[in-house]
């Protein structure tokens, strides 16, 4: 629960979309009946998070509100409801490990512990070099392929300590870069 939020940490320098992304936003707004363009807010927030620094600062949310011609509060209430949106600054790579039942049955607890030890951080924290943030998430719909984690929309399944070593090395060296 974020009961005592340091609001200063949620501000950042304003960033804007590339012309291509702006064209995509306009296209999304025209995909739905006239006047219903608010529908695009989730997709545009995903685009904003992916392109404008990996998390949603208050400035980014205000920018999205401007683009969609809606009130800032309409963006805030959406961004705070859905768990995929990060409201605090994250590391370059966010490792989201599934912790729900089916993954737990096949050892997600041990994988989480292993990553914590390997990166020397707790769940919710970011490594000192700003490379990795470790999060746990609820069911990712990969129950038959667990334990698993997702990073930048890419699933890494059937995790073992060796595979975790490999993928952390992969991200560090840029092999897994999109």
């Amino acid at each position: 629960m974020n009961l005592h939020v340091d609001i200063n940490k949620r501000h950042a320098e304003r960033k804007e979309f590339s012309p291509e992304s702006l064209a995509k936003v306009n296209e999304l707004m025209l995909d739905v009946p006239e006047g219903k363009h608010k529908s695009a807010v989730l997709r545009v927030l995903h685009m904003a998070q992916d392109e404008l620094g990996g998390w949603l600062s208050i400035e980014t949310m205000d920018y999205v509100a401007e683009l969609l011609n809606i009130q800032p509060i309409e963006v805030y209430e959406v961004a705070t409801f859905y768990t995929m949106f990060h409201l605090d600054q994250t590391g370059k790579y966010v490792l989201e490990v599934c912790r729900t039942g089916p993954c737990m049955l096949v050892g997600s607890d041990k994988i989480i512990e292993y990553i914590e030890n390997k990166l020397n951080i707790q769940v919710g924290q970011t490594t000192e070099d700003g490379m990795f943030t470790l999060k746990t998430v609820e069911c990712m719909g990969a129950c038959g392929y667990g334990p698993m984690l997702q990073c930048q929309y890419k699933n890494h399944e059937f995790l073992t300590p060796e595979k975790v070593d490999e993928l952390i090395e992969g991200y560090r060296s840029g092999t897994f870069e999109k």
Binding site: R43, F81, Y82, M84
Partner: peptide, 12 residues
């Protein structure tokens, strides 16, 4: 017919 795909944001 027009068909669109819309993403959610992580909410069961």
């Amino acid at each position: 017919l027009d068909l669109r795909v819309m993403p959610g944001g992580g909410a069961y």
